[in-house]
Design a protein around this nucleic acid. Structure first.
Lengths: 211, 211
DNA sequence: CGGCTCTTTTCGGGTCACCTAAATATCTGC
DNA sequence: GCAGATATTTAGGTGACCCGAAAAGAGCCG
């Protein structure tokens, strides 16, 4: 059973959904994230099930099998390594890499990917703070809290900013927030080194802090 | 009329055929080069004709329209720049780049391609000696002879070695022949700096010399 | 627990790029 | 200039992946 770009995208999306929260993904959410009709998801999920890549009972959420997860991690690795590479070597800003990586992850050969990985010094996190699985599919796990759910007064480091919305990413960057920064959760925003910082609308839903 | 990888491959292949010889390509040759059935070519050529990319009357050869050539040159540029980049930056050998470039040429964005071009210093020839069209589609043209058709005693520089057959490329490299070298055509092979060099079978059909 | 809503699936279709087999046009040698 | 060989086109499919409309299941509220 050979893979295809479409299949890889499904697996990656299912995986990504559970990476920073625990509920498994439902078909409608999967459809929304992939930008396709729910009926198409039903069909494809059936195929993935037949290939042993996902477990799925009708009208229930979709989960990856171990083999499905293995392949998903492979794609996540590709995506994040490529994003890192575009930022480090080609002067892309962290909010500009997602789309290009979305395409290249399907077409760069294993060989080139390995050279890229080596050249970057086998990075363990991408520019958004997401961990990059190693070639064996092992991922670093860190304890985290979503900013929207962190109590006021919580102190931590900005671990990750979701790369789903480039516009929001730019606003967040404009507000002076960067991955790796030490921050403190204020009643209505963040404090960086004691200085309060106003957050763009929706930002608390895409910023993760260390626990 | 959006492009597709398939369409781009047709245009590029039609263009490539007339680049180093003059007869326009026939459907069967096109099918052979693309590795698909002749009937598929008929169908696709009809579509390309409807889009104004090729001129074709039934049972005749296929020619590019100006617009078709423009797009073909765009693809040729992509292919050759990517090949050059893989050799210069990622340590690929000149016989290893073709396949990777074949895929990446369809998926690298204009923006990344431009950065690659700039980083390489806007090269005008690729590792096989093929000229790289500039962003406006202008190509360097050089007077050339196919080795198989050069008279014994002819002296010239190795301009180009076709990249179609990686195995043959390796044999040619193994024989000590490289792009840019000054050579002399001997009755049964080549002379490099007076030393006769034996040629692998078929090599004379893929090596071009300056006229 | 019955009805209403929202989610998911089923069903019939569509496009793209490919295929094989069969028909037809062109070319070549005599 | 005609027969046979060869090239090309037509006709009828196929597999991926997607769609919208309609049917069916699941969840919830009174």
């Amino acid at each position: 059973m050979p893979n295809s770009p479409a299949i890889d995208d499904y697996l990656k999306t299912v995986y990504a959904h559970t990476e920073w929260q625990d509920a498994p993904i439902t078909p409608s959410v999967l459809a929304a994230k992939l930008g396709i009709a729910p009926s198409s998801v039903t069909e494809m999920v059936k195929k993935l099930g037949a290939q042993g890549l996902v477990a799925h009972e009708p009208y229930r959420a979709v989960r990856l099998t171990p083999e499905g997860e293995r392949r998903a991690l492979e794609m996540v690795r590709r995506h994040r390594l490529i994003e890192t590479w575009l930022v480090e070597e080609y002067g892309y800003a962290w909010d500009e890499v997602h789309e290009e990586a979305e395409v290249l992850e399907h077409t760069i050969s294993d060989r080139l990917l390995e050279k890229i990985d080596a050249r970057l010094g086998r990075p363990r996190f991408d520019p958004h703070g997401d961990p990059i699985p190693d070639a064996a599919g092992v991922v670093e796990r860190v304890r985290f809290v979503l900013l929207a759910e962190a109590p006021a007064g919580h102190e931590g480091r900005v671990l990750r900013v979701s790369d789903r919305d480039p516009g929001l990413l730019r606003l967040i960057e404009g507000a002076g927030i960067a991955v790796g920064q030490d921050v403190r959760v204020a009643p209505a925003g963040l404090e960086i080194a004691g200085t309060p910082v106003a957050l763009p609308a929706g930002a608390a839903e895409v910023i993760w802090l260390s626990a």
